[in-house]
């Protein structure tokens, strides 16, 4: 691997080619699990695990996968890692597993994973592919955490279950008692608005026109 390659992969996947706000991939889970910070952290860890390992394995197998059935092989590899995550969550974090419900299984159809497998792992050696998976996962995670932080804080006045605003806030500050929860933020419309706002801010301030790429996986 040429020198500086790892740095370039990380910079691209965290910044200008971020899977969520630049490529618009993996939106389902971005919207669905971000109402509470705790669930989001668990979901992100699961996704980073699956994405890194599936990218590595698919890249290691890339010379033996016939191109006609490659989608099927990719899905099977991804699904086996997702099953591991699901079983681990059920054993160690049964409450969160119940709250996440079908969204753990839906990591299989999360287009970030298929997208990275098709776009990167099929053409690169295992080690850069692992880094690509890890950095894409981290790029996805920090966007989700930012959205979850805003949604839980505005929607329930808390972060990670700790009450920061409203009644019984941990600062015991009287001026925070008057906080009213924006209950719309924990419901479906709030998720759409929050992600749109995030994309607007990032694209408006950061990404110059012509630089962004579309969702290659979805357009097929």
């Amino acid at each position: 691997m040429p020198k500086g390659e790892a740095k370039r992969i990380f910079r691209n996947n965290l910044g200008a080619e971020n899977p969520v706000f630049a490529q618009i991939l993996g939106i389902c889970s971005t919207l669905a699990v971000t109402n509470v910070v705790e669930n989001t952290v668990v979901m992100c860890l699961g996704l980073v695990f699956v994405l890194t390992l599936s990218n590595t394995v698919i890249s290691a197998l890339r010379k033996w996968i016939p191109s006609r059935i490659r989608m099927m092989v990719e899905v099977l590899v991804i699904a086996s890692f997702v099953i591991m995550v699901d079983i681990a969550l059920r054993a160690w974090l049964p409450d969160i597993s119940r709250q996440l419900g079908p969204y753990v299984g839906l990591i299989i159809t999360n287009c970030i994973i298929m997208g990275r497998a098709e776009a990167f792992a099929m053409n690169n050696k295992p080690w850069p592919s692992a880094l690509d998976g890890l950095s894409s996962g981290l790029g996805y995670s920090y966007v989700l955490l930012a959205i979850a932080f805003a949604r839980e804080l505005l929607g329930a006045g808390s972060v990670w279950g700790i009450q920061l605003l409203g009644r019984d806030n941990i600062f015991a500050a009287a001026w925070l008692e008057g906080w009213t929860n924006w209950s719309i933020m924990v419901m479906a419309p709030g998720a759409f608005f929050m992600l749109a706002l995030f994309i607007w801010i990032v694209k408006g301030l950061w990404i110059k026109p012509g630089e962004q790429k579309g969702c290659a996986q979805c357009r097929k």
Binding site: I24, L25, G26, I27, C28, S29, L31, A32, L106, C111, A188, A191, C215, Q217, C218
Partner: peptide, 8 residues
């Protein structure tokens, strides 16, 4: 929020 990718 399911099926967002093709929806968008």
């Amino acid at each position: 929020y399911l099926g967002m990718c093709s929806f968008l």
